[in-house]
Amino acid sequence: MAQMTMIQAITDALRTELKNDENVLVFGEDVGQNGGVFRATEGLQEEFGEDRVFDTPLAESAINGLAVGLSLQGFRPVPEIQFFGFVYETMDQISGQMARLRYRSGNTENMPITIRSPFGGGVHTPELHADSLEGLIAQQPGIRVVIPSTPYDAKGLLISSIRNNDPVVFLEHMKLYRSFREDVPEEEYTIDLDKADVKREGKDVTLIAYGAMVHACLKAADELEKENIHAEVIDLRTVSPIDVDTIVESVKKTNRAVVVQEAQRQAGIAANIVAEIQERAILHLEAPVLRVAAPDTVYPFSEAEEVWLPNYKDIIESVKTSINF
């Protein structure tokens, strides 16, 4: 076992799959010699050559269009979109094209593409570099959205995503890239897609989150423990489609749920989870399912991020509202 940050675990997963399958290609803006602006592809071009790991011209729509074309030639592309805020440039190639191609071809073609991209806020980037736009892709059937919250999960989920024959948008929260290290096996392993993970067990309330908000939930759970409130924390890991079974099973045990997302309240993943819970477990609930989310404004300029992003205190407050309902 080695101690790795999430960015190291991601590089390790890419290296593993570049070694395993010569059809795997890694490309995007600055991913070659520069090793990516976050260094996720550090050393890979040197190791695998420019044929396998290469810089593209500066055009996101073309990067993902290239991935579609390469898939049609039997490759397994792993394009990088340098920041997920730039996804608007390439919405058609993702949602209009690769997500629909299996269907459009009458199930005769597949798109084994894994689009990697940094997302999320709190690291003082310029405008349009930080946002939680996973909801945009989650609205599109035919493509998965996978979001790891730990180095261990990042490696296993990325390998699974690359091996999967359907397209995946794999989102890496920028704040988690180097925030902590943990043991990550050097050998290869996979983690099932479409499966949530119970990151902490508890009997009083279920907290459901993904990405950096998993850590806000764990912190809130630590604090609540001091007041003898035992929170269960579920990390969705795949946010589209949702692992409803794990959530419903937990809610049936705790009878209360708070869904947490960094994205704005008015749309996104959390609303879907609340709907699933009320459809499947309403008679088990002692309180309405609550949401913790950012306010319904555009993502703010960097100086305003701190006051805007949801945090563990907001989660504690919602848990108490639920318990005192």
Binding site: R265, Q266, P295, D296, T297, E303, A304, V307, W308
Partner: peptide, 22 residues
């Protein structure tokens, strides 16, 4: 310093109900 209330007030000319509540 910027506040969330500044941001909320910049979203629309007329504030919709969800933002009034927030």
């Amino acid at each position: 310093k910027q506040k969330v209330t500044d941001l909320i007030s910049f979203m629309y000319e007329e504030m919709p109900p969800n933002l009034k509540e927030q």
